[in-house]
Measured scan of single mutants.
Amino acid sequence: MSDQEAKPSTEDLGDKKEGEYIKLKVIGQDSSEIHFKVKMTTHLKKLKESYCQRQGVPMNSLRFLFEGQRIADNHTPKELGMEEEDVIEVYQEQTGGHSTV
Rank of each mutant, 00 (worst) to 15 (best):
residue 2 S to C: 12
residue 3 D to K: 09
residue 3 D to G: 11
residue 3 D to A: 09
residue 4 Q to Y: 10
residue 5 E to N: 09
residue 5 E to I: 00
residue 7 K to Y: 09
residue 7 K to H: 13
residue 8 P to E: 00
residue 9 S to R: 11
residue 10 T to Q: 11
residue 10 T to I: 13
residue 11 E to A: 12
residue 12 D to K: 11
residue 12 D to A: 13
residue 12 D to S: 13
residue 14 G to A: 08
residue 15 D to F: 11
residue 18 E to F: 11
residue 18 E to Q: 12
residue 19 G to V: 13
residue 20 E to L: 11
residue 20 E to F: 12
residue 23 K to I: 13
residue 24 L to Q: 03
residue 33 E to V: 09
residue 33 E to L: 06
residue 35 H to V: 09
residue 36 F to M: 00
residue 38 V to L: 12
residue 38 V to D: 03
residue 39 K to S: 09
residue 40 M to G: 10
residue 40 M to R: 10
residue 42 T to G: 06
residue 42 T to C: 08
residue 43 H to F: 08
residue 43 H to W: 05
residue 43 H to N: 09
residue 45 K to R: 13
residue 46 K to L: 09
residue 47 L to S: 03
residue 50 S to W: 11
residue 50 S to E: 07
residue 51 Y to R: 04
residue 51 Y to D: 03
residue 51 Y to M: 01
residue 52 C to I: 00
residue 52 C to K: 00
residue 53 Q to C: 01
residue 54 R to E: 05
residue 55 Q to M: 15
residue 55 Q to I: 15
residue 58 P to V: 00
residue 60 N to S: 11
residue 60 N to Q: 06
residue 60 N to C: 05
residue 61 S to F: 08
residue 61 S to C: 08
residue 63 R to H: 09
residue 63 R to S: 07
residue 63 R to A: 03
residue 65 L to P: 03
residue 66 F to D: 03
residue 66 F to G: 03
residue 67 E to F: 15
residue 69 Q to F: 08
residue 69 Q to E: 15
residue 70 R to W: 10
residue 70 R to G: 13
residue 71 I to N: 01
residue 71 I to C: 00
residue 72 A to N: 15
residue 73 D to M: 03
residue 74 N to Y: 14
residue 74 N to Q: 07
residue 74 N to T: 11
residue 75 H to G: 02
residue 75 H to I: 07
residue 76 T to D: 01
residue 77 P to R: 05
residue 77 P to H: 03
residue 80 L to C: 04
residue 80 L to I: 01
residue 81 G to E: 13
residue 83 E to R: 13
residue 84 E to K: 13
residue 84 E to C: 15
residue 85 E to V: 09
residue 87 V to W: 06
residue 89 E to Q: 05
residue 89 E to P: 00
residue 90 V to P: 05
residue 93 E to Y: 11
residue 93 E to Q: 11
residue 94 Q to T: 08
residue 95 T to S: 10
residue 95 T to W: 14
residue 97 G to R: 04
residue 97 G to W: 00
residue 97 G to S: 02
residue 98 H to V: 09
residue 100 T to C: 08
residue 100 T to N: 08
residue 100 T to A: 10
residue 101 V to M: 09
